[in-house]
Nucleic acid binder design. Structure first.
Length: 810
DNA sequence: AGCACGCCGACT
DNA sequence: GTCGGCGTGCTC
């Protein structure tokens, strides 16, 4: 007897695998996708082990292998295991990252009438039950989903369960149809004898005009014609073509049809650029490491100021990997996956670049994945999940803008960080990793200074204008300049700079970090923001209780009527959105053409491109927007960049608030002065002395880093410790709170019993989003070391979600 | 997730 | 009594 350990697609499975017996005649290998019985239904799973003995006495048989899904390699199985163990995520969901797009299929429930229901007295049934019985008879069975749509969830469920109890209906289960598969195309060719071709009229035209039209069209095309083209050109039906096939006049062939997201985008091929000395030495370090295959693969941190030519280093490193017969994966933040970025890679490696991201159709993702697996592409470029592309002979992984938080999956398990998983993959496969950023994450830079990563620096800008310096930044203290001119949002300095630029035909970017719309409390006069003493995060205002609450430790205090620092009664809740900014800008700078760029105004498919075109063709003067505009815009006409409130990010309840502010401001500042006219940047702030703002104004990473790392060390935040966020969600707020308190107590006694030192359990406190989809949420934060090991032994009732190394609101 | 089971309060 | 709501344990 042979056995298989299977990661099953069921929430019940969690991090365990389940033991199954393998039928004698079944070919099964490690990493194979299979279907297995699980409870009363059949589910998909992946074989993660082929042990000699099962883990339990009673096993059921593996139902079938799924032959069209290629088995996962040992490397990727080990990676999935690591993700599950480290991020405390269900094993199947970790394995599923590496399976072809659209693999997962839902299990559907059907309701069918039984024989017993034939001789039932209908008067003993209520209306809902009669409806369910009627529908389940119409075509043998009915999907429960359909009944829920008719009756609503509660009524459908109760009617069905009552009927089941009386034995009048039975339930059955079935996997949903595949959501995606390889597409084929029907091609049609004229079946003309070779000697007759050219004479045209040798084929007898019978059966009317339509048939003649089809034959004419096929005759005028040298090769096979795709069926949709033929149908559109002639208006013929499939039946008509079939009759021509039957008559032997037309031949139909089936062949694969590839959905290609880059088709028709023929970019002009580019050649490698000449490198500066620092670019060349960075490239040299990377390429020489790739020559010596090593386990684990080395990690480089490429720290290059904006416009220092990081991408050119990536491109040449990839070219070198390809010369060595290896392939590469390039990860970029979701927000940078613009056509321009992809084109830059596609132009250097014509027809050798695949893209993978969630905005592609499932069919496109599926086809790209299959083609990648066959080794068709030297380079895969994509967002977070592209890390798991089945790229054969992977030699180089590039993580561009490694500090970006879109690399962390937040919304669903596994809550992994693509950068950290990339490093693990390199460890397992021997690939080289290059992390690139103008403003490296504090944790990454710390590891580089400690020697875990090798630091490569690109200190000079490579701009079209020779030696163009980074633009000068003016820091304007809004407290002194409030309510100047027409608007509350513009200081005199910014107002003047914008007017001057518009008047001389230059362009302006006004930047507003909308996250400031959150309800922190700030004095309108002196800019004071009320913070928690213990946690040093800003307090959040709760209007129901009129309290200020710390979302880390649950410290509460009554909202003051006057500012605690300057005693001004004008304490207010800040937060102006981009829409308001657009209105005020239009009012303040009459005659200027204002464009808004944020997630609301860019819903449409080509809206990014349209806005970009408007700016490039000088049909707009002022661009107003959120973080989206901080990325990769290269507009030589922009001379003034204004940040409306540089502090907004500082006041979020997040220990990374200063880091994020510095990164964002540095990026925004990089948008100005890219053309021959130079440029300037203006930061409006209530905190002109804050180190993150000053360091960004001076374009000085080390100034920021040295202060920040000291602060992290003092407060024992990462990289000096590890964090985990545990959130419990429940419809009842009190129950939610008491469960969070219970878990905290349990973790405290557990850690004592297990002799684990250096662990602090913070909270519970209401989660940042206290109520989500009708459920209240309470949060407990754990700080310590090796948290995965500790937490894996803590039993978590349903309703808890764990986030290891959380980004954002902690 | 979904199902069965057991406990509880609100009704016939 | 019995129905429904809700928490809990189980799925190889």
């Amino acid at each position: 007897m042979r056995y298989a350990e299977v990661a099953v697609n069921s929430p019940a499975a969690q991090r365990r695998s389940f033991s199954y017996s393998v039928p004698a005649d079944m070919d099964i290998v490690l990493g194979q996708a299979v279907r297995v019985p699980f409870g009363s239904r059949v589910m998909e799973g992946v074989v993660v082990d082929l042990p000699e003995f099962p883990a339990v006495e009673q096993t059921r048989d593996v139902e079938a292998v799924i032959p069209e899904v290629p088995p996962l390699s040992l490397t990727y199985l080990a990676l999935a295991r690591w993700i599950a163990d480290y991020y405390l995520a269900p094993l199947f969901q970790c394995v599923a990252l590496m399976l072809p797009p659209g693999f997962e299929r839902k299990s559907l429930t059907f309701v069918a009438a039984t024989d017993k229901s034939q001789d039932i007295d209908p008067t003993t049934l209520n209306d809902d039950q009669l409806l369910v019985l009627g529908l389940s008879r119409t075509s043998g069975k009915v999907a429960l989903k359909h009944l829920v749509k008719e009756l609503g969830e509660k009524r459908a469920e109760s009617a069905v369960s009552q009927l089941v109890r009386r034995g009048l209906v039975s339930k059955s289960y079935q996997l949903a149809a595949a959501r995606v598969r390889a597409r084929t195309q029907t091609w049609l060719t004229l079946n003309e004898p070779a000697e007759a071709s050219g004479e045209g009229s040798t084929i007898p035209v019978r059966g009317g005009k339509r048939q003649a039209a089809v034959l004419d069209l096929l005759r005028s095309h040298p090769g096979p014609v795709p069926w949709p083209v033929l149908r559109q050109a002639t208006g013929c039906t499939k039946a008509l073509v079939n009759s021509l096939i039957d008559k032997g006049l037309v031949v139909s062939t089936e062949s694969a049809w590839v959905r290609d997201p880059l088709s028709g985008r023929g970019a002009r091929p580019t050649t490698p650029l000449r490198l500066t000395a620092s670019q060349a030495s960075a490239l040299q370090a990377i390429t020489s490491s790739m020559c010596q295959a090593r386990h684990p693969g080395p990690v480089f941190l490429l720290h290059g100021v904006t416009a220092s030519g990081k991408t050119e280093v990536y491109l040449q490193a990839l070219a070198d990997a390809i010369r060595q017969g290896k392939r590469g994966i390039v990860l970029v933040p979701e927000i940078s996956l613009t056509p321009q970025t992809i084109e830059r890679f596609a132009a250097r490696f014509p027809n050798q670049v695949a893209v993978l991201h969630s905005h592609l159709s499932l069919g496109e993702q599926f086809d790209e994945w299959q083609r990648i697996r066959t080794g068709e592409f030297d380079v895969v470029i994509g967002a977070r999940s592209a890390l798991f592309a089945p790229q054969p002979n992977l030699g180089l992984i590039i993580v561009d803008e490694e500090h970006e938080w879109t690399y962390k999956q937040q919304d669903k398990a596994p809550r992994y960080h693509a950068r950290d998983v990339a490093i693990k993959l390199a460890q397992l496969s021997g690939a080289t990793v290059v992390l690139g950023s103008a403003t490296p994450g504090v944790e990454s830079y710390f590891r580089a200074t400690r020697g875990d990563y090798r630091l490569l620096s690109l200190p000079e800008r490579v701009t079209p204008v020779e030696n163009a310096p980074l633009p000068p930044v003016r820091v304007v203290d809004i407290r002194g300049e409030l309510k100047s001119g027409n608007s509350e949002l513009f200081s005199q300095t910014l107002s003047q700079a914008v007017s001057d630029a518009v008047a001389s035909g230059e362009q302006v970017i006004l930047f507003l970090n909308r996250r400031g719309a959150s309800t922190f409390v700030q004095c309108r006069k002196c800019g004071f923001v009320i913070r928690c003493r213990r946690c040093d995060v800003s307090l959040t205002y709760h209007s129901v209780s009129d309290n200020l609450v710390c979302h880390l430790c649950n410290y509460r205090t009554r909202a003051p009527a006057v500012c605690p620092r300057c005693h001004n009664p004008g304490i207010k809740f800040l937060g102006a959105g981009t829409q308001k900014l657009e209105e005020e800008t239009t009012r303040a700078f009459a005659g200027a053409r204002v464009l808004r760029w944020d997630s609301d105004s860019t819903k449409g498919r080509d809206s990014h491109q349209k806005i970009l075109n408007a700016l490039q063709t000088y049909s707009a003067d002022i661009l107003v927007g959120t973080q989206m505009i901080a990325k990769g815009l290269d507009l030589p006409l922009v001379t003034v960049v204004g940040v409306i409130n540089a502090d907004t990010g500082l006041n979020l309840p997040d220990f990374r608030a200063a880091e994020r502010t510095f990164q964002l401001l540095s990026q925004v500042a990089g948008r100005a002065g890219r053309g021959p006219r130079g440029g300037e940047v203006i930061f409006q702030t209530y905190n002109p002395g804050h180190f993150a703002i000053l360091a960004a104004a001076k374009h000085d990473y080390r100034l920021f880093y040295d202060r920040e790392i000291t602060y992290r060390r003092q407060l024992n935040y990462p990289p000096f410790s590890q964090l985990a966020s545990l959130i419990y969600a429940h419809t009842n707020d009190n129950y939610c709170r008491s469960e969070a308190e219970r878990l905290k107590r349990q973790m405290e006694t557990d850690s004592q019993a297990r002799g684990i030192a250096g662990l602090s359990i913070i909270g519970p406190a209401p989660a940042f989003i206290h109520r989500l989809r009708g459920r209240y949420r309470w949060q407990v934060v754990v700080r310590g070391n090796a948290l995965s090991d500790f937490l894996s032994e803590v039993p978590l009732p349903r309703g808890w979600t764990v986030d290891i190394d959380p980004m954002g609101l902690v």
